[in-house]
Design a protein around this nucleic acid. Structure first.
Lengths: 151, 151
DNA sequence: AGTATCTCGATCGGTTTGGTAGGCAATGCT
DNA sequence: AGCATTGCCTACCAAACCGATCGAGATACT
């Protein structure tokens, strides 16, 4: 249940792109404005391009731009592009589990967990984060007691 | 956002222990009844013991048993015992992020995500899963449209 | 004491992760 | 045409992690 460096960097870079929409921005600018390792970021941006989130332009005056409006790209889309499926059990999808005995109902828990994760990551878009206006559902979660303290 | 083999195995073993409560059960039985690699499971059970979830008895007639009633051990407790914090960003806690610029509000998203994960894993206990009676909140999530299909 | 169990600590090989380096391909400017 | 700029691909590397195992230490029974 960890957000990898790839996912974190990808989201941050796309947030910068979203705020510069629709002009193209070069990777240098993205890396410096969020203090990300340049070459590593390039590899991540390539994943986003292959995932259909980004368009790229080579050569001088080149750079990247969003393939869709920022309001139509969810955080979950970005994570899926760089890390694969949002949630899984031992590398596989929760619905393909096949537990028996006392663990028979465990599958339902994992499915509920995935649904819960999706309810956050698939509802928040890049535009939401840039504008600082998160969906009510997400604001409620972040404002619930103990949300900001470790456990 | 993956459930590791350690976490999956740990939960399944503790579910068996919960159903045998309060008698001690040896790792052999746990491994066979859920088809888990025996020696690997032992290492995982040791983590649970150090985490205060299990009591162990060495030697002949030894085995493991729950340190608390099954209704007072949440799935989240088990995962924390074997994998550390439930949710984090690049190995650190979400609240220690320190984003700036366009990503300033991203921290709130990660905190909401963690709260969402906790709302499932910290509300479901071992006893719930064994009895097949999950909290309403979790049943609603698992029953929501699309919860059982991949994306 | 001896022995059969059973847990515990250390270890190990392979994969993934985070990050770097260099060369090639495409584009625009002069 | 020639050159500077910028993305793209392959390879490489160290460190961490993951799944799994071996040998030793603790306990109970005879």
């Amino acid at each position: 249940m960890q957000i990898s460096a790839r996912a974190d960097y990808a989201v941050r870079a796309l947030l910068v792109l979203a705020s510069h929409d629709p002009e193209t921005t070069k990777s240098d600018v993205l890396a410096e404005s969020q203090h990300l390792p340049k070459k590593f970021l390039e590899a991540i941006l390539a994943d986003c391009r292959r995932g259909g989130l980004l368009l790229s332009q080579r050569g001088a005056e080149g750079g990247y731009r969003l393939a869709r409006p920022a309001a139509e790209i969810a955080i979950g889309d970005v994570i899926r592009a760089v890390d694969g499926p949002l949630a899984g059990v031992r590398g596989a999808r929760p619905e393909t589990a096949g537990y028996d005995g006392e663990a028979a109902n465990l599958q339902t828990v994992w499915v509920a967990l995935r649904a819960s994760v999706r309810s956050v990551l698939d509802e928040v878009t890049l535009a939401d984060v840039v504008r600082g206006e998160l969906p009510d559902h997400v604001r409620t979660l972040a404002g619930s007691p103990g949300a900001w303290s470790s456990r």
